[in-house]
């Protein structure tokens, strides 16, 4: 009955675990086509800055080498980066819920490359968010700080948000639902308040000690550090590194549990 057979040795394995420009391009395009993602990550933080950061009763008071507006601008850029990176990472929740992750496991794509692509997309979205807030801030003109502070703060806010890319992945694997960001949005708003992004928290108060243990604290402090100069506190760096380790560990743990049914 069989007239032909297939020789498996004639088949090739794709290079780089399946990583390629076509898929990365499609992933970036998907992200920008998602209206909710664009509103939450690109428009909301800029809008918040305009609402909070430009109030004339305090905006021009001196804060470090800049003014209060600059302080709030950096905070909102960090908040935008956090939202964007989390949304990017949490895309895996939707993809798991839809069975797309399972579909991908029937292709040569390596799971490591999949996570890498999700991380690139999350960081790209984070970068866009930081740029959006800063452009709005620059055009608005209320925020003043030296250019190098402006640039370093933006880069730290963006790079530090990698912690939340990992957080998004972890939550994406933990909560397989199509609308995981509806849960994570309020959680992040709460964490931002605790981490000192909405209003300054006295670091010597009880609230200050609690704040120092929450995941946004390290990022918030480090992003605003260029405004003040000097040496960064070890606790800021420790906070960032420990939370990064917790979220990466959590994501890796959930992923490894995720064997039979993706």
């Amino acid at each position: 009955m069989t007239t032909q057979t297939i020789d498996p040795t004639t088949r090739r394995v794709p290079p780089l675990g399946g990583f390629n420009a076509t898929m990365l391009g499609l992933e970036l395009r998907r992200m920008l086509r998602n209206r909710r993602t664009v509103i939450i990550t690109l428009i909301l933080p800029a809008l918040l800055y305009l609402m909070i950061g430009t109030n004339t009763s305090y905006s021009n008071q001196t804060e470090g080498s800049g003014n209060v507006s600059a302080y709030i601008l950096i905070s909102m850029a960090a908040y935008g980066a956090v939202l964007a990176s989390t949304s990017g990472g949490a895309m895996v929740a939707t993809e798991r819920a839809l069975g797309w992750s399972r579909q991908l496991r029937l292709t040569p794509l390596s799971p490591v490359v999949y996570i890498l692509v999700k991380s690139i997309v999350a960081l790209a979205l984070g970068a866009l968010s930081v740029v959006a807030v800063n452009v709005v801030g620059a055009v608005n003109g209320k925020a003043t700080m030296p250019t190098h502070v402006w640039i370093t703060a933006a880069i730290i806010a963006w790079a530090g948000s990698v912690v939340f890319g990992a957080f998004g992945l972890f939550m994406g694997y933990l909560l397989p639902s199509e609308n995981v960001m509806q849960v994570l949005g309020p959680v992040l708003a709460g964490l931002a308040a605790l981490g000192g992004l909405w209003f300054p928290i006295n670091s010597h108060s009880t609230m200050g000690h609690i704040s120092a243990c929450t995941p946004i604290y390290g990022l918030a402090q480090l992003a605003r550090w260029p405004l003040y100069g000097g040496a960064p506190h070890a606790v800021w760096v420790v906070n960032l590194v420990v939370w990064l380790a917790i979220f990466v560990g959590g994501a890796a743990w959930r992923m490894s549990k995720d064997t039979a049914r993706v």
Binding site: R11, L98, R102
Partner: peptide, 19 residues
């Protein structure tokens, strides 16, 4: 699977709605 020798078709799911 890495050599593309195996495929599977499921009844439901496995597609991204936004592509």
């Amino acid at each position: 699977i890495a050599r593309g020798l195996v495929s599977a078709v499921m009844q439901t799911g496995g597609l991204l709605k936004d592509l």
